[in-house]
Design a protein around this nucleic acid. Structure first.
Length: 402
RNA sequence: GGGCAGGUUCCAGAGUGGCCAAAUGGGGCGGACUGUAAAUCCGCUGUCUUUCGACUUCAGAGGUUCGACUCCUCUCCUGCCCA
């Protein structure tokens, strides 16, 4: 496989189409690495599999000897990439930005080599921009162009508010590209517009426009929306092996092809084979297990992956308490000064962040088991003996210890 | 600046004086089913209370009323039209 083929594999869109080939050629002729830009907003430092799709591609560039520049949107974070969903954001403190950036970069290391990438904060150049410089920048972009952007367009059409500063976001992001002379900007397909802005500004300033490479957006656990922390449908890069495995198993079967393609480290042949098994009607569960194992192995290791698979098999496949694993919780930590207590109170003590009403519903709804027996009476008196096993909801398994 | 229309629980969106903790749909959470998942069906979805019920909530503050999400006043916020 040629470098070009490898680097363009799995990419949703390259703009212009022959841009990557052109840049690679140029790099060879000029004997220099390409500058590959990736921006991020330091507001949500929890990276997930969706981010990894882009990062894995970045890794390939890194391995091919190109220069990775990570732009921390320390300035633009104050605006927040306008999605229409979230209201205008509070400006983050300098400390918060730095802390978020640090955790971000740490997690970045799960996919790319953090020692071989440059990190820049965009308030370095945006923070001190004078008003005349801003006006000069704004003069390069028209309102009609900005309104072409999907979020803006939708909101405009739906009579939803668009604050003026939100319109600046793409322009500022483009300005970043100008500052670092990006050859290529990476992003998800949702970044197409913003990245294009970089091209435009570079051209307007007499520089070579960057090539835009958009990776497909990974869908989240619900199988519908894109993976995103605010939608609570992510598989986090730092999730524990068992959680990572379990979450992967919980994706809808229909999402499997996408996951095989975008999240696994299988070879092209292996991927094709898995897909073929799927269409041949093999039980998707087995294939999903392979995918889950592969994912866990990537972010942890083979042993953890195998352990997570085994854990899943014992914890969620049978209904028998004997084989399941329970998290030990000491009686003292519950602060219940009694030897026996009503089920509801026990649940309250164990799930402190749930409201009592909510737990009451859970119990009456049949979601609570004690020692392998479903209990629906909230008043059922439970003896607090060591070894008591209790399951609350689908995911909480607790064993009392003295 | 002027005119008009709006702000309802996670979201969308009904509700225009008591029958409203607030329809319906979505989402979420449980259960049944299941080979993980999906589909389907059932239940739940403000807080506290064993029950009766009590309490807090419909942008905010006041007011009218026995009683307000619903009426009045002011304030804040949003959109549209005109300047």
């Amino acid at each position: 496989m040629t470098t070009l083929e490898q680097l363009s594999a799995g990419v949703d869109r390259i703009l212009p189409e022959n841009g990557l080939a052109h840049k690679l050629l140029q790099a060879r002729q000029e004997n220099r690495p390409l500058v590959i830009k990736l921006g991020f907003d330091p507001t949500a430092p929890d990276l997930h599999l969706g981010h990894a799709v882009v990062l894995r591609k970045l890794r390939q560039f890194q391995d091919a000897g190109h220069r990775i520049v990570i732009i921390v949107g320390s300035f633009t974070a104050q605006i927040g990439d306008p999605t229409g969903k979230n209201k205008s954001r509070k400006p983050l403190s300098k400390e918060a930005v730095m802390a978020n950036a640090a955790t971000y970069i740490k997690q970045l290391g799960k996919v790319i080599d953090p020692t071989k990438c440059e990190v820049r904060f965009n308030d370095e150049w945006l923070g001190g921009l004078g008003f005349n410089a801003i006006l000069e920048l704004l003069s390069k972009v028209t309102v009609a162009q900005l309104l072409q952007r999907n979020d803006f367009n939708k909101r405009f059409m739906a009579n939803m508010p668009i604050a003026l500063h939100e319109l600046m976001y793409p322009i500022l992001q483009g300005f970043d590209s100008l500052q670092i002379d990006a050859d290529i900007e990476m992003g998800g397909t949702d970044q197409l517009f913003n990245c294009t802005m970089g091209r435009q500004l570079q051209e307007a300033h007499g520089k070579a426009p960057q090539v835009v490479m958009c990776m497909p957006l990974l869908k989240g656990l619900d199988g519908n929306e894109k993976m995103s922390k605010s939608l609570n449908n992510i598989i986090g890069l730092t999730d524990e092996p068992s959680a990572m495995f379990g979450k992967t198993m919980s994706i809808p079967d229909a999402l499997l092809p996408e996951f095989i393609e975008l999240t696994t480290s299988f070879t092209v042949e292996e991927k094709a084979q898995l897909l073929q098994q799927l269409t041949a009607g093999n039980n998707p569960m087995h294939i999903k297990k392979e995918v889950a194992t592969n994912i866990v192995a990537q972010y942890h290791d083979e042993q953890s992956a195998a352990a997570a698979a085994a854990f899943f098999a014992t914890q969620f496949q049978p209904k028998n308490f004997e084989e399941m694993e329970f998290k030990p919780v000491s009686k003292q930590s519950l602060l219940l000064n009694a030897t026996e207590v009503a089920l509801l109170d026990l649940c309250c003590a164990l799930k402190k962040d749930n409201s009592k009403s909510n737990l009451r519903r859970l119990i009456t709804g049949g979601g609570v088991y004690i020692n392998n027996e479903k209990i629906t009476d909230v008043n059922k008196v439970i003896g607090l003996a060591a070894g008591l096993k209790i399951k609350i909801g689908r995911l909480t398994f607790i064993e009392l210890i003295s």
